[in-house]
């Protein structure tokens, strides 16, 4: 009993280890089911698809540190991707990318304003801005229907390309992840996030002005979602009005599986990255099993539940 508790505490303090074990296990099962699948190409593909998911999940992870969530992230990513693709024929690649990130920042800022100044629950706030974003995108689409759209080669290269066996998107993602992992524990901002999520009153007492944190946090979350959208459209190469939306709930799931508490004050982005990889591998696994779609979706849900339940049980204090 006490041994189990000790293991639980160890895993609680090092949440990434059991996740890596689970990931290895899943890959093992995959290799067992389909010997030879575990090759460079498959790994590259899995990583390629996991990266936009992990970036979107960064929005969830960091907002969850404060006890929040960003349900507008999927829409924001879609908006950025779509706006960028439709602007490329008009203004060229560079300006299009920069312009496309403006709505992302804007939606994030509005989320931040609602959470910071009107005390609206982030779930509600980001849900609302997501709706508004979707509507705006649909209206926008009617204006640009004539211009057509184009995914610039640079993004395609980044999204789908492989160099020396490594997906090019790692060029963006590795520095990105390193920065986030550094920032969460070794910057004042990161500390403030955990502090607010752990005890808002105590953070205030210690001099943290929550509104500043929320404003910056949700704006950054918008920005990250926008970048994830650009990367994703580079991967998919076909912009649409609901391009990234299907990744929203998986992004929440990736953060949760990765050990981030939805109530705030606990978690790590490293866990989220592994969580995103687990979801991707799981997806392949379920597809390979040639099950009816219903069974696949069902198992996907069950596994999310089981993993988080085991996790909660192990780290229950």
């Amino acid at each position: 009993m006490s041994a189990l508790a000790r293991i639980g505490r160890f895993l609680g303090d090092n949440p990434v280890i059991p996740l890596l074990i689970l990931l290895a296990l899943l890959v093992g099962v995959l290799e067992f089911m389909r010997p030879g699948i575990l090759n460079e190409r498959w790994i590259g593909n899995t990583v390629k698809f996991a990266i936009p998911l992990a970036m979107l999940a960064a929005c969830q992870t960091f907002t969850m540190y404060t006890g929040g969530i960003d349900l507008s992230a999927g829409v924001v990513a879609t908006v950025s991707a779509f706006v960028m693709a439709t602007l490329v024929p008009v203004v060229g690649t560079g300006p299009a990318i920069l312009l496309a990130l403006i709505p992302a920042l804007l939606i994030g800022l509005v989320n931040g304003i609602g959470v910071a100044f009107a005390n609206v629950h982030p779930l509600i706030m980001s849900l609302g801005t997501g709706l508004i974003g979707t509507g705006c995108l649909q209206v926008y689409q009617r204006f640009v229907i004539a211009t057509g759209s184009e995914v610039p080669p640079f993004l395609t290269w980044l999204g789908t390309g492989v160099t020396w066996g490594f997906p090019n998107s790692l060029l963006i993602f590795v520095p990105f992840a390193a920065l986030l992992i550094y920032a969460q524990s070794r910057t004042g901002f990161g500390r403030a996030l955990y502090a607010i999520g752990s005890n808002k009153e105590a953070a205030r007492l210690s001099g943290v002005r929550a509104w500043q944190v929320y404003l910056l946090l949700y704006t950054l979350s918008g920005l990250v979602a926008g970048i994830a959208g650009l990367l994703y459209v580079g991967l998919i190469r076909a912009p649409s009005l609901s391009l990234v939306n299907p990744l929203l709930l998986p992004s929440v799931a990736a953060a949760v599986i990765g050990g981030t508490s939805i109530f705030g004050g606990r978690g790590s982005y490293a866990g989220t990255i592994v969580g995103a990889l687990i979801l991707r591998v799981l997806d392949t696994l379920l597809t390979l099993m040639r099950m009816p779609e219903g069974m696949r979706v069902l198992l996907f849900g069950l596994i999310i539940l089981v993993v988080t339940a085991i996790y909660v049980r192990l780290t229950d204090r």
Binding site: A253, V256, R296, V297, L298, F300, L305
Partner: peptide, 9 residues
């Protein structure tokens, strides 16, 4: 969230 998938399945 998990059950959303389960029931959809």
């Amino acid at each position: 969230l998990a059950m959303l998938y389960v029931w959809e399945g």
